[in-house]
């Protein structure tokens, strides 16, 4: 019950703050020169002043600022993110269409980075000065230090162009016929490169932390005691040490969700992944205010949900946290 309560309080805070920032951003966007009518006319191949005025009137862009802001806030209070000027669709619909792709990418990358990161961390912690350990350290530093879009481009060139194992762009091949399994496998094939690219940054962070915490727990008294009691090495490592090492890694992963979403924007751009990042970039360039604000709102939600899930996972692996408020 207390868990639920604390979750609700957190969500409430988040919603209040998000609304505040939506209003702030709406005002910022109003202050900047130019508006979406210009972009609409560009995509039309040009329009005269009369048409531009018409477009502004159609979308209420000709109204004074307080009126526009009032209307926007009014809609927000009714959980309506408004209507996209540029895409001619309700913002919520647009975003919900794109959201699954981003969620798939973000969560796959996070899980991939976590699992591989922890495994690598454990391997290297068992022999801190072995070759495997140095390899993990190097790999981790490489992943972290390379610009993520650069990694993506290099992977794209190698595994799509030179060795055409994976498709270049998009999330699915619509020409494939078959049932759910066929389609799922197809999406998976499209997901491989983007997910690896995005995971590469965080893999670094997680494997380093996993290694460090494993080293620490392996050196701690109770693990030494366990070993002294004659428990098998394998048993000690996996049952005791790993369990203790996991929770800081998962905590860190939870804190990284915002960074993962940011990375996803770049990865989506490289692989033409049809997610929120691609939509965000296009909307920013087009100054499609309602869509940009909607995306900020939803991506913050993704981060919040990611954090909540992290809490749940933490509770699962660390019984001591159960029953405690967040």
């Amino acid at each position: 019950m207390r868990v639920l309560q604390s979750l609700l309080i957190r969500i409430f805070y988040a919603v209040v703050l998000l609304t505040a920032v939506l209003i702030l951003n709406f005002s910022l966007m109003y202050l900047a020169p130019g508006d979406v009518a210009d972009t609409i006319s560009q995509s039309m191949g040009g329009a005269d002043k009369e048409v531009l005025d018409q477009i502004r009137a159609d979308y209420g862009l000709d109204q004074p600022f307080p009126v526009q802001l009032g209307r926007y806030v009014g809609r927000i209070l009714h959980f309506d993110l408004g209507y996209s000027f540029f895409y001619n669709d309700p913002v919520t619909k647009l975003i919900l269409e794109r959201l699954p792709a981003t969620l798939l990418l973000v969560f796959t990358a996070q899980i991939l980075a976590l699992v591989v990161g922890v495994v690598l961390g454990v391997i290297s912690a068992r022999q801190p000065n072995g070759i495997a350990s140095h390899f993990v350290t190097m790999l981790a530093l490489f992943g972290y230090s390379a610009p993520v879009f650069w990694t993506g481009i290099l992977l794209l060139i190698v595994f799509s162009l030179k060795i055409p194992w994976f498709p270049v762009a998009g999330m699915q091949d619509v020409t494939i016929e078959g049932g759910f399994v066929v389609h799922a496998l197809d999406v998976l094939r499209h997901l491989v490169l983007p997910a690896i690219t995005l995971a590469s940054i965080f893999l670094a962070l997680y494997s380093r932390l996993a290694r460090a915490t494993m080293l620490e727990t392996l050196g701690s008294d109770y693990v030494r005691t366990a070993k002294a009691k004659g428990l098998a090495e394998r048993h000690v490592v996996y049952k005791h040490a790993l369990k203790n090492a996991l929770s800081p890694v998962v905590t860190l992963a939870g804190l990284q969700f915002s960074a993962v979403v940011s990375g996803a924007v770049l990865v989506e751009a490289v692989f033409s992944w049809p997610g929120l990042g691609t939509l965000a970039f296009q909307s920013i360039i087009a100054r499609d205010t309602p869509t940009i604000l909607g995306i900020l709102f939803f991506s913050a939600l993704v981060v919040i949900v990611g954090n909540l899930l992290t809490d749940l996972v933490l509770r699962m692996i660390d019984p001591r946290l159960r029953g405690r408020g967040a």
Binding site: L156, P167, V168, A169, G170, T278
Partner: peptide, 18 residues
């Protein structure tokens, strides 16, 4: 007719090529 939407020029180029 399938019209795929691929904004990135390099990705589009490789898609043609492959």
């Amino acid at each position: 007719i399938v019209m795929r939407i691929i904004p990135d020029i390099a990705a589009r180029t490789i898609a043609y090529e492959n």
